[in-house]
Design a protein around this nucleic acid. Structure first.
Lengths: 214, 214, 214, 214
DNA sequence: TATGAATGAGCGTTCATTCAT
DNA sequence: TATGAATGAACGCTCATTCAT
């Protein structure tokens, strides 16, 4: 499983190899359980070289988070056609999200679990990525509401809550789709679209659920 | 902050004190960063006593997870009146969930973050609790579908996906409600109910979103 | 050479054993070349116990410096009879100094070489001890000058320089007496007394050496 | 501060640049805290080149000690006019010594502190330089004693002790003069001359201090 | 002459865990 | 029931040193 031991590589290449190894080890073992020895061995280099290039375990973890966060947001962005209507954009975004997380489960573990569980500055970096996605979804919802001529009925904090809920649902379904056999990215995206778009439509049509008086 | 030093307590009491301390330390510092010294000190006992009662750090963490998982599921169950219609039951369940997580943030951190991030057997225990909640929600959706005479249109795996999505949305909103100031449990539950119930209703009315043909 | 392995000692005793070992290792190998493993082994305990009691290598070194500085100044102070004339007091002080450094060469190496060579806070601690000795000598010189009714002729900074010179000479002779065989503390003290007391006497009698005009 | 990066210099020049850098780093950081990286960087060359020219850290340190020891003894020797009487020669020697140490504090730190604190072969090299100076002073004292027709009264080992004391006093005053503001080389030399020459004169005149009978 | 790439070996420190009482 | 004394094992990190070009 370890990389083939090839010597004397240019620095940039070696660095990517180290990050590749780090994603796998961090994603599978967790930040604290991962040892620099393990990562160096999987990368096919000695420990001092990892330190020479990445400085410290913290810096290495941060570099991993940043690289994978950029990769995920880029994948979503690349999947979305900006000239399409809001529902199509949401659909393609979800599809890209589920496909990327399914293809890179270790990276998703790092971003969704490890980074958020081990304090600053990691949690902040993961939160920043998540915030970008939430903002993206928030804008889609706002556009959809405008198209339905309904925005006066949806206050800002409600839109924010909806976006949070939608992103949380997507995160949950990502794990579900990766676990339950036979459920692919398309199906997960379909389920969520059905649920979400109908819910949004109803909301915008003014149909709201009222809590009991108690 | 540590418990007042009272000697010679009955075992059951001492054990609860240790678990109380462990929840706080694990929840705030994380599993690996928490040290047995910290926990023993906060519990007001010596380290060997912790080992005498709880055996090991793993066992202690497991005991914490089990106690808090039971407390959370019990809180949800206690909030739901079985003789009510499905929407009311979902509403009260969500309300109880948001209230409990807001009142016990360390416990929620243990269940939602720490337990899932540090491998087996912890992740399994947390997954079991989550599965129980998902099952509960699944049943509610099934009942609602039956009430709407629509179950033939909602295949099982779709219902499972919806439940997963709903639970994920709730988890996401729990963090959001605890962070953003001024958002309480009622508001989070209201936002989610509006979103979810309308979405479910639309689905059951046969309004579905279809992916593009591409 | 290592201490006999006796288990379960009270903390205070173990701490002294550790300091004893540390003096030898630090004195013979130097601060940086000394390893905590070496010290723990010579003390007959495991490394974690050293850390439990002394916290860190820095703290251990500081504790050694403080203990040995106190022992040396105490030895000098104990050798001096305060009711005697200044020359006798200087003599007994020098004698005690040479005897102590001869009997504890590792401690002297720590105080005179290691502590001064490895930056703060060690150098400061050693400097404080030395300053106390210089002050002691300065006072002796001042008393002697007063007895000779000559103090107006000896400006303060000149007295300070003389004290510095005298202490430096003593430090140098300590090494010399410990190295050259057959030279004991008495002889070293005698040589220095002859040199110093005569020099001081001449100075106080107003005989001064003038640099050439160039 | 690092040397301007000029390539392809003749070996002799490069070597001196490396030694210059090494003196500064060793003098300021100490032997063990100094890293070959630091030295290479300050010298403006790559690390392998340092090894190519100087072989190892030990050899580099030895080369530094030898160069600076030679420079210091040469400075003292150059300051002394051999055709002058003993007191003038001592005066000029001290003056040259204080001036050189004040002008080259890093070199003095290496010779006086670092070399003596880090075992063989460094301590031996520093001791050899010191022995040369002690011998030089011993001869001056012997000449002065002969001039005073007093040598039968001053046994050899006493002369040796006096020389040791004088050199120690000078070393002590060098640090003192470099620290205390406003004290220059001339003043330090003056203080020491006053002290030493008067002491020596008294000794040679047969005035000796006798220890108490006890 | 000169260097970018790479490592073996070791050190300070921490922590879960146990022994003896 | 309760604890002061003690440790095995591992981890993050650094450094002098060398290889291949």
């Amino acid at each position: 499983m370890g990389a083939v031991k090839t010597r004397r590589m240019p620095r940039a290449v070696r660095e990517q190899q180290m990050l590749d190894a780090a994603v796998r080890i961090f994603g599978q073992r967790g930040y604290t359980a991962a040892s620099m020895d393990d990562i160096a061995e999987l990368a096919g280099v000695s420990k001092p070289l990892v330190y020479l290039y990445l400085n410290s375990k913290e810096d290495l973890f941060l570099a991993v988070i940043r690289r994978e966060a950029a990769a995920l947001t880029e994948a979503v962005r690349a999947g979305v056609r900006p000239d399409q209507p809001a529902d199509r954009r949401l659909w393609h975004g979800l599809l890209a999200f589920f496909e990327h997380t399914a293809r890179h489960p270790d990276a998703w573990s790092v971003l969704h679990l490890q980074a958020r569980t081990h304090g600053e500055p990691f949690a902040g970096e993961a939160a920043a990525m998540r915030a970008a996605i939430v903002t993206f979804v928030t804008q889609l919802i706002a556009v959809a509401a405008r198209d339905a001529h309904r925005d006066p009925d949806l206050p800002d904090h409600e839109v924010a809550g909806l976006a949070e809920a939608l992103v949380g649902a997507a995160e949950s379904l990502a794990a579900w789709a990766n676990t339950a056999d036979g459920i692919g990215a398309r199906q997960a995206a379909g389920t969520l679209m059905n649920f979400a778009w109908a819910g949004l439509g109803s909301l915008m049509a003014g149909r709201r659920w009222s809590p009991p008086g108690e």
